[in-house]
Amino acid sequence: MPQYTGRRRGPTKGELRERAILEGAARLLKRRPPARVTVEEIAAEAGISPSTFYFYFESKQAVLAALVGAVTARLRSDLGGWLAGDDAAGEALDAALATTACLWREQGALLRAAFFEPGTAPVLRAAMEEFTDWLVAGMSERIERDRRAGRALPGPPARALAAALVRAIIANFALAGETEEDADGRATAATLRTVIVRAIYGEEEPARASG
Rank of each mutant, 00 (worst) to 15 (best):
A137I: 00
A96M: 10
T132R: 15
R31F: 00
D133A: 15
R7W: 07
E180I: 11
E130H: 12
V195Q: 09
R193F: 06
L16I: 13
G14N: 11
E144T: 14
A66C: 07
I170G: 02
I196N: 01
L175S: 11
V197S: 02
F173W: 08
T194I: 14
P34A: 10
R9I: 12
D133I: 06
A152I: 08
T99K: 06
V39W: 10
G138P: 01
K60I: 04
L124I: 00
I200F: 07
I170V: 15
L153D: 06
G24E: 03
A176V: 10
K60P: 03
L153P: 00
R151A: 15
E129T: 12
R8K: 14
R125Y: 02
A174C: 06
V68S: 13
W82Q: 04
G80Y: 06
T188R: 10
T5V: 06
G138S: 02
A66V: 05
P122Q: 07
V63K: 12
A84Y: 02
C102L: 13
Y201K: 00
M1G: 13
R151M: 14
R112I: 01
L64Y: 08
L28W: 04
G177Q: 03
L16T: 13
E117M: 01
A20C: 04
R32T: 08
I48M: 10
E204D: 13
A109Q: 14
V63F: 10
R8H: 09
S140M: 02
I196H: 03
A44N: 03
F173C: 02
G150Q: 08
A65L: 10
P156H: 11
M1L: 11
T99F: 03
P122Y: 09
A43Q: 08
A89I: 06
R36L: 11
I143T: 05
E15H: 05
D86K: 09
T194G: 08
W134D: 08
E144V: 11
V71E: 10
